Simulated scan of single mutants.
Amino acid sequence: MTRASKPPVVSCPICGAAVKWLADNRWKPFCSERCKLIDLGQWATGKYRVPVEPKQDEDETPDQSGRPQ
């Protein structure tokens, strides 16, 4: 006989409410559609950003100052 394990519980990234991590929880990791849309809006307005370093062309070699020649 095996015991059913309890599903992991995470905090909603927007409001902090406890969220059970279940396959049928359609809003995970959020607690509701409202929190999901708030998060989407924060991405859309630029509040969240993924840092990116500018890519340097392979043909250009930087001089001492770090600028391409």
Score class of each variant (00 low, 15 high):
Thr45Phe: 02
Ser65Ile: 08
Asp59Cys: 03
Glu33Gln: 05
Ser32Gly: 12
Ala4Met: 07
Gln64Asn: 09
Pro51Thr: 04
Asn25Glu: 07
Ser11Leu: 14
Asp57Phe: 12
Pro51His: 05
Asp59Phe: 11
Ala18Tyr: 10
Val10Arg: 10
Glu33Val: 03
Pro51Ile: 07
Cys35Met: 09
Val10Asn: 01
Glu58Gly: 00
Arg34Cys: 04
Val19Gly: 00
Thr45His: 03
Lys55Cys: 07
Lys20Asp: 12
Asp39Ala: 14
Arg49Glu: 15
Asp63His: 01
Trp27Tyr: 15
Pro8Tyr: 12
Ser65Val: 10
Ile14Ala: 13
Glu58Ala: 06
Cys35Tyr: 09
Pro62Trp: 07
Gly41Glu: 13
Cys31Pro: 02
Asp24Thr: 09
Phe30Ser: 01
Val52Trp: 06
Glu58Arg: 08
Asp39Tyr: 10
Val9Met: 02
Val52Thr: 14
Asp59Tyr: 11
Pro13Gln: 00
Phe30Leu: 03
Lys6Asn: 05
Cys31Tyr: 02
Asp59Gly: 02
Glu33Cys: 02
Leu22Gly: 01
Val9Pro: 00
Arg3Asp: 13
Gly41Arg: 08
Asp57Lys: 14
Pro68Asp: 02
Ser32His: 04
Asp59Thr: 11
Leu37His: 12
Pro54Gly: 01
Gln42Asn: 15
Gln56Lys: 15
Ala44Asp: 14
Arg67Ile: 08
Lys28Pro: 00
Arg26Gln: 13
Arg34Ala: 12
Asp57Ser: 14
Asp57Thr: 02
Asn25Ala: 10
Asp24Gln: 07
Trp21Met: 15
Arg34Met: 03
Thr2Asp: 11
Lys28Leu: 08
Asp39His: 11
Arg67Val: 10
Leu40Glu: 11
Val9Tyr: 03
Gly41Pro: 03
Lys6Pro: 00
Asp59Arg: 11
Cys15Leu: 09
Glu58Lys: 06
Gly41Thr: 10
Arg3Asn: 11
Met1Trp: 02
Val19Phe: 09
Ser5Val: 12
Leu22Pro: 02
Val19Asn: 01
Arg49Asp: 13
Val50Ser: 08
Lys20Gln: 10
Thr45Trp: 08
Ser65Phe: 15
Leu22Trp: 04
Glu58Ser: 07
Gly46Trp: 02
Pro68Glu: 01
Val10Ile: 12
Trp21Gly: 00
Met1Tyr: 03
Ile38Phe: 03
Ala23His: 11
Gln64Met: 13
Tyr48Gly: 01
Lys6Ile: 13
Asp39Val: 01
Glu60Cys: 14
Glu60Gly: 01
Trp27Met: 09
Arg26Thr: 14
Asp59Ile: 10
Ser5Ile: 11
Cys35Asp: 13
Gln42Phe: 07
Phe30Ile: 05
Gln69Val: 14
Gln56Pro: 06
